[in-house]
């Protein structure tokens, strides 16, 4: 029943496609304008990281329900180099854009749940959810 759709990230334009898909799905799921923008921004950051650091990968978007709560789930996966120091990456102020609030800690803030697993040489999978309140 869970509707799932995905976008392959290969070129920079695919980031835009992933955003578009995310916004449409967020809207359909019933999120307001601000949360739509937050979900889209999170997707954008994740897709951009795939494009920049892994070369290619995939963004999947799924509507989810758990114990009466409804929301949206984003899975960003790639088979790139992996993230060597996850603890550092999740620290504020670490991203290369330096103090612009974005990056992975930003994604975590924009969403309600965030999980990352990454293995050097194997790839990275980031799963993140946002619930309708």
């Amino acid at each position: 029943m869970n509707f799932r759709s995905s976008v392959e990230i290969i070129t920079e334009w695919d980031i835009v496609a992933a955003r578009q898909l995310g916004r449409n799905e967020a809207k359909k799921a019933g999120f307001g304008t601000v949360d739509q923008a937050r979900i889209t921004t999170a997707i954008s950051e994740l897709a951009r990281n795939i494009y920049l650091y892994a070369g290619k990968g995939k963004i999947e978007i799924e509507r989810v329900s758990e114990g009466g709560a409804f929301g949206i789930k984003i899975i960003a996966s790639d088979e790139g180099p992996g993230i060597p120091d996850l603890r550092k990456v999740m620290e504020d102020g670490f991203s290369t854009s330096g103090g612009l609030g974005a990056g992975m800690p930003g994604v975590k803030r924009l969403m309600d749940e965030f999980k990352v697993s990454s293995e050097p040489g194997v790839g990275t999978i980031i799963t993140t959810k946002k619930w309708l309140h």
Partner: peptide, 16 residues
């Protein structure tokens, strides 16, 4: 609203 998302993030990063 779209323009302000990153401002909001920066603010929260600051606070933390």
């Amino acid at each position: 609203i779209e323009m302000m998302i990153h401002y909001g993030l920066t603010l929260r990063e600051h606070q933390s």
